[in-house]
Design a protein around this nucleic acid. Structure first.
Length: 482
RNA sequence: CGGGGUGUAGCGCAGUUUGGCAGCGCACCUGCUUUGGGAGCAGGGGGUCGGAGGUUCAAAUCCUCUCGCCCCGACCA
């Protein structure tokens, strides 16, 4: 550990000062930076490259499940936003309003979208006439503005990027199936396979659900400081919006009926999750599937052999380029050691070193970011080995994270022990809850822990509520959350 | 929006108590020597000391007002 700290002078210790470590890593790795606008960050090329790779993996899955992308306006007239009562109430405190066009005061204020249900529903009501128009499966990749009081890079910013899916169905069952399909086949698959982040899935309590939804499903990820982060949500909106926006269709049986809807989203917050879950004392550790640079070539340049080594490095890059995202660091004036640390801090999964010694033996050195392990590889085997190593790193990150998650799920039925765990160890607590908002609120008040989700797998034996002791109670996960 | 803290070069800070040439480390630029786990030497550039007003021969330093940021609460993806 001491050795690690020595290598990374620019970032705070993860163990000693996690919040500072997080900010340092995000900024020094050049993922993002602060701007002069309060709560708004700039996503720098390296961070945006990461986001683009993340988008690609999720967008593919969204399309594979039959959805299409579209674009709806940034502005939402106040009257539209107000149509669904619970929805407005939920979002009103954090809406940014446009009141003027040029110097002219607007007749009606325009909200900058805090989410797009309202504007999309207003159009769905125009587009949907017949059962033949259904289902509608639309997604959009856009920016969102929510006037949060406290912001943190990626985790909570005034403006952020996300995708939001909005679907319309004939029946309650079909909407429910869609909500769960997104949760499992799209989000869970993406987050676990591409981002190597294991998740706990389940339903949100009434208190925690989306404003205006019938119910909300969630994917929750455990960060390495023991706090949970909501990684994505999928809402079954029921007919709340259909009724508020008058979205009806004429069914096969010639009856006019309200539609059933869903909406679901994931955000740039997931970038923060990657940093917080996989990172270590040396900085970022990116999963190969989304890393902007998968292999960084560091040529070892001595005066006499510089030319040959650079040529060799260039030819290796040309070969690897066909299958991998690869870059070469030819900067003068930085020692190899400096570059090693730099690229490790930026989370590149594999480093390839090539110098005169290697050239003489027809080999290169490969160093893994996740384990630090260094091996010599013959040139003929390079492509094969790089592929193998990248797959292995991806898997290893997930396995480690999964183990960490499992080790930090603790069961208790004793409230005092519950408090101790939350205070000292954090992580998740698996326990029972009677279903009353009162108990939920009290626990939050006394321990800062909230119910992250009600898992789908309910064990047969029912337990007593951790707070009031009432039976029967539901199995839930509690944790402190971001 | 309540309680606390803090603003001095891109970053991290000293200087403020007791007013007297605006400094240090890192980063940056130039040159030479270097380069297999954060190189060395020499030279150089960069500041309306968060902002406004006041006291004074003289203000980073004292006074008044104001703004930003951070932490803890309340709110949240």
């Amino acid at each position: 550990m001491e050795k690690d700290v020595e290598f990374v002078k620019e970032i705070a210790s993860k163990e000693k000062n996690f919040p500072q470590w997080y900010v340092d890593v995000v900024r020094k790795a050049e993922l993002a930076d602060y701007t002069t606008i309060k709560g708004c960050m700039v996503i720098r090329p390296y961070g945006y490259g990461l986001w683009e790779n993340m988008q690609a993996g999720l967008d593919r899955r969204i399309k594979e499940t039959g959805h299409k992308n579209a674009y709806f306006p940034l502005f939402i007239p106040e009257s539209l936003l107000k149509k669904e009562a619970e929805h407005v109430e939920g979002f009103a405190p954090e809406v940014a309003w446009v009141t003027h066009g040029g110097s002219q005061k607007l007749e009606e204020r325009l909200a900058i979208r805090p989410t797009s249900e309202a504007v999309i529903c207003s159009l769905y009501s125009k587009w949907i006439k017949s059962w033949r128009d259904l289902p509608i499966l639309i997604n959009q990749w856009v920016n969102i503005v929510r006037w949060e009081k406290v912001t943190r890079l990626f985790l909570r910013t005034t403006e952020f990027l996300w995708q939001e899916g909005h679907t319309v169905h004939k029946s309650e069952q079909e909407a429910e199936e869609e909500t769960l399909k997104i949760l499992n086949q799209v989000y869970r698959d993406y987050i676990e396979k591409d981002l190597a982040i294991p998740v706990i899935i389940g339903r949100k309590t009434e208190k925690e659900k989306f404003a205006g939804a019938l119910h909300t499903y969630t994917l929750e990820a455990l960060m390495s400081d023991g706090k949970m982060l909501q990684a994505g949500t999928s809402h079954n909106l029921g007919q709340n919006f259909a009724k508020a926006f008058n979205i009806k269709y004429l069914d096969e049986d010639q009856q006019e009926k309200y539609v059933w809807q869903t909406s679901w989203g994931t955000t740039t917050r997931l970038v923060g999750a990657l940093v917080m879950l996989h990172g270590d004392e040396r900085g970022l550790k990116l999963p190969p599937k989304v890393a902007p640079v998968q292999v960084i070539i560091v040529p070892i340049m001595f005066d006499k052999t510089k030319k040959e080594v650079l040529e060799k490095a260039e030819s290796i890059r040309a070969i690897l380029k066909k299958n991998f995202r690869v870059e070469i660091d030819t900067r003068d004036g930085y020692t190899p050691g400096w570059k090693f640390n730099e690229w490790e801090m930026r989370g590149v999964p594999l480093r390839l070193e090539i110098g005169p010694k290697d050239m003489a033996q027809g080999q290169v050195m490969l160093a893994r970011r996740d384990t630090g392990e260094k091996t010599a590889v013959k040139e003929e085997k390079l492509v094969e080995i790089v592929k193998e190593l990248l797959d292995n790193i991806q898997e290893n990150l997930f396995t480690r994270a999964k183990k960490f998650l499992e080790e930090n799920i603790r069961e208790t039925s004793d409230y005092n022990e519950f408090k101790k765990i939350i205070e000292k160890k954090r992580g998740l607590i698996k326990t029972y809850w009677c279903g009353s908002k009162d108990c939920e609120d009290k626990i939050k008040e006394e321990t800062k822990a909230s119910i992250r989700c009600i898992p789908f797998e309910q064990e047969e034996a029912s337990g007593k509520c951790i707070y009031c002791g009432k039976e029967p109670s539901t199995l839930v996960y509690f944790a402190r959350a971001y």
